[in-house]
């Protein structure tokens, strides 16, 4: 059940986090402590229990298909770390 450093490395990539070797080691230990604790739930037999998704019922909450004013172009890009040509700019993808 316990996770290893290479599992943490995989989780980090999936989470888009870069970890140093020391961090990997530290997280391996600390994640295992938390996971051990979380694992205590498996003591409960829950075969007949429905998973709770919404604590309060939430059904058919809709909006009408009416256009609303969004952000103006300047506002949309206001927080962009890098903007060009009216768009958000990112470094090469592959």
């Amino acid at each position: 059940m316990r996770i290893k450093a290479e599992d943490v490395e995989k989780l980090a990539l999936m989470s888009r986090l870069e970890l140093t070797e020391e961090e990997k080691a530290a997280y391996t230990e600390s994640l295992n402590a938390s996971l051990d604790y979380m694992h205590s739930l498996t003591k409960l037999v829950t075969d007949t229990v429905e998973p709770a998704v919404h604590v309060l019922p939430m059904v058919n909450v809709f909006r009408e298909d009416r256009v609303e004013i969004g952000l103006d172009h300047k506002q949309a890009l206001a927080n962009a770390p890098e903007a060009e040509a009216g768009s958000f700019k990112v470094p090469r993808i592959v």
Binding site: V67, E68, I69, G70, H73, A76, A85, S87, F88
Partner: peptide, 17 residues
């Protein structure tokens, strides 16, 4: 959200939070 789906507008002009 209520942003328009109209095709062919200037980039990032039909956006909201």
């Amino acid at each position: 959200c209520g942003c328009s789906t109209e095709f062919g507008k200037e980039p990032n002009t039909q956006v909201c939070p």
